[in-house]
Design a protein around this nucleic acid. Sequence first.
DNA 1: CCTCTTCA
DNA 2: TGAAGAGGG
Length: 333
Amino acid sequence: MGVALRDIFLPYREEISLSLVPGAVAIDAYNTLYQFLSIIRQPDGTPLMDSTGRTTSHLSGLFYRNTALMSQGITPVYVFDGVPPELKADTIGERRLVREDAAAKWEEARREGDIRAAYVYARASSRIDSEILASAKKLLGLLGIPCIDAPSEGEAQAAYMAMKGDVIAAASQDYDTLLYGAPVQVRNLTISGKRKVRGRSITVRPERITLQAVLLGHNISRQELIEVAILTGTDFNAGIRGVGAKTALKIVQKGDFLSVLQEKMPEFDPQPVMEFFIHPPVTDDYEIPFKKPDFDGLISFLSDEYGFLRERIEPVIAPLCNRKEQKTLDFWS
DNA sequence: CCTCTTCA
DNA sequence: TGAAGAGGG
């Protein structure tokens, strides 16, 4: 989702400490993979690769992050996207164009030796192909981490699992998670807090947003929150030009959602979008079993197949494999 | 992204 | 002790 709605949620973020919040968390897999693929790159934009040229950035990211999360008592559960809704076709098409344009500009920048531009365009050209998807699922399986295939949007499935109480939160960087009804969303579910932003090093900490706090704070219902999103634009509709979060919120609070839409976008029917956020396709057909990591399998997969150095990965896995039992579930504090 | 090393 | 930078595959 675009940045338009950000302002609605910013005041309701609470910093949290990972060690204080053990439990199962449903993680938006595509969101995570894109992040790794876009960020784990060399200065000229080249991703990490094995000797045959296969991308390994996502494997590095998944391996180190999840082992770290597990050692903190968190049980990651990855939720993968299924078939995107027809409503998303325009957004998907636009994203593809942006990616392809970025890929061409990456090539160009590299030819001309413009490293900084190359890095920027390389990031924007990140794409999840079938090989990346398959290797990600294989690695997660070897780590003993459940992978769930959503019927449609992964964020919707993750939110559903949080609503049912099977996980204590849905983790994603996108605020759509809250539109889908997740009672608790976690952003920046990472270990190391240092991030480089425009050359500056800043600290990013894990944060939690509670849907109830957002709704009470703005004195709106979840349906009205979705109305605000529709006015500013979602993955499923374009939104009204010139209407940002603040204006949209005022419109909705005054009860003018339908009349403003009728005036500005008479051709647009918001009902299918509302319906998708309220009743997205989800499944109850999943399990969250506790499984230990497969030590030998991990060594063979990461080292033999993808060229990771044994001495780097062994000491990371060993303590997890020796662990007797999962830490007991606890409440957020 | 995450880890490790270096250096003030 | 911790911020900054290099390197990972």
